[in-house]
Nucleic acid binder design. Structure first.
Lengths: 251, 251
DNA sequence: ACTTGAACCTGACGCAACGGCAGGATTTAG
DNA sequence: CTAAATCCTGCCGTTGCGTCAGGTTCAAGT
């Protein structure tokens, strides 16, 4: 009655046809998502053409990440697909934000671990606290988009490049500190070269984006002691020294 | 024996102390992740200082998204935290890529649905096919980073701006088509204005990024018929017309 | 000492979307 | 007519707990 001699499939055939598993079709039957419109006298499931079409719709909606229950509700009566999708999109965005935050912390943690070696169980806590502090600090100074941009740039540059740049900082800081201690004039060629190198390395982070650059500077200025103590970052004096050096060259 | 008069906590106290739930502590005991080092004669759990420290480490690792089983293995014997974290990071990256792809499809789908109205069940399949095709096409012409940048820009611009820009395209295309049909010279002021408007709207997408712009142009050129039929995109002739108009103004 | 309310215990089901197995019936090819 | 393939139903396992349920113990007030 489901069709005038319409074709029909058994579970295994339908499974091969659609790339799903037999178990999945059983499951969909069980939860009332797709019940075969017929059965053989012995109880074998028989799917008609309507069923197959329905299945394809189910798969389509499933690929959008919708839960089966929602799909079922959608197929019986439609409480507005558009609204539902937008709502789902918001949910996906939340997940996305969460997993991006997780990734940030993980990256920081990996960097920290390979920088200071495997933490001796007690240090793990301290390390995580630091990682969280860094993460919070970043979040205070950068928008979600800017953080994504930073991550992007680092991915694009590749790991070895990032490590290379990171490795050059302590060296550069030491050199500048030496000149600062020696009282070298900011206008001296040596200091000018160092300042240029400094800006190049910074460029790696902000990529020329003025928004990123400003955020970076503000974070630097506001948290210089913390950065200095925890990561051997430059002191406020050093920042000022470089600033003066740049002022000389641009005047 | 666990300490010389060391302090101890009962589940509820520890729960309040750490912000976890009693059930969670029960669970950690059950799976062997954190078994209290002592019990009262009647069986109430007593956590010592060591246990509390252990718990904090567990929470720290949990916040990195590590599964409890892995955390347990880490705490008993350490199969190198650094490797483990890197491995986990790779896993997180996979999830990230998956959810980004999902988000892309969802956004496309939402846009399509609100553009053509709620699909009449049968159309849903066609729509999804189109969405997939668009997604595949985008993936062929843009790198993952570029796609992220596109999304970012749209998020930054806000939904209403995006919709506004999208709404202006058909109008602009119609106007250009009219001039094209009328055989107006590409150098005519009217056409010049339209061409400038054209470039402005395009700017909204590539945001001035040359890589994005090139990808966009290549995709346009390679898939003009498809875009034209499916989305009322401009014809190759129209593209050429605009190109000539731009050539005039830049010469 | 007695009562009462708060805190504690163990055990078990639920969730999301199936995977995988067991044990038995049926279909189909040779 | 037999053997292999396919089908059936039902149940446990997954992840990290939430949420009862039914019973015991603790701490305080009278």
């Amino acid at each position: 009655m489901t069709g005038i001699g319409g074709q029909s499939w058994k579970v295994g055939q339908l499974a091969r046809l659609t790339g799903l598993t037999v178990r999945t079709l059983h499951h969909y039957d069980q939860v009332g998502l797709l019940c075969p419109s017929a059965r053989t006298p012995s109880g074998h499931r028989l799917y008609g053409e309507q069923d197959v079409r329905g299945l394809y719709r189910i798969v389509a909606l499933r690929e959008l990440g919708l839960p089966l229950e929602v799909i079922r509700d959608l197929l019986t009566g439609e409480p507005d697909l558009a609204d539902l999708l937008r709502e789902h999109l918001a949910h996906v965005d939340q997940q996305l934000a969460a997993i991006r935050a997780l990734r940030r912390r993980l990256v920081t943690m990996v960097a920290a671990v390979q920088a200071v070696g495997p933490p001796g169980s007690a240090d793990l806590l301290v390390l995580m606290e630091e990682v969280k502090k860094v993460d919070d600090t970043m979040k205070r100074y950068f928008t979600e988009e800017q953080l994504a941009a930073l991550t992007q740039r680092h991915e694009q540059a590749g790991e070895e490049a990032t490590e290379s740049v990171m490795a050059q900082w302590p060296q550069l800081i030491a050199q500048v500190q030496a000149e600062l201690d020696a009282g070298t004039d900011p206008g001296a060629p040596k200091v000018q070269a160092l300042a240029r190198r400094w800006m190049e390395l910074l460029e790696f982070f902000h990529g020329g984006d003025p928004g990123l650059r400003d955020s970076l500077y503000r974070m630097q200025a506001d948290n210089s002691e913390m950065l200095q103590q925890q990561y051997g970052g430059p002191s406020p004096e050093m920042i000022d020294y470089i600033r003066r050096a740049n002022a000389v060259s641009s005047s």
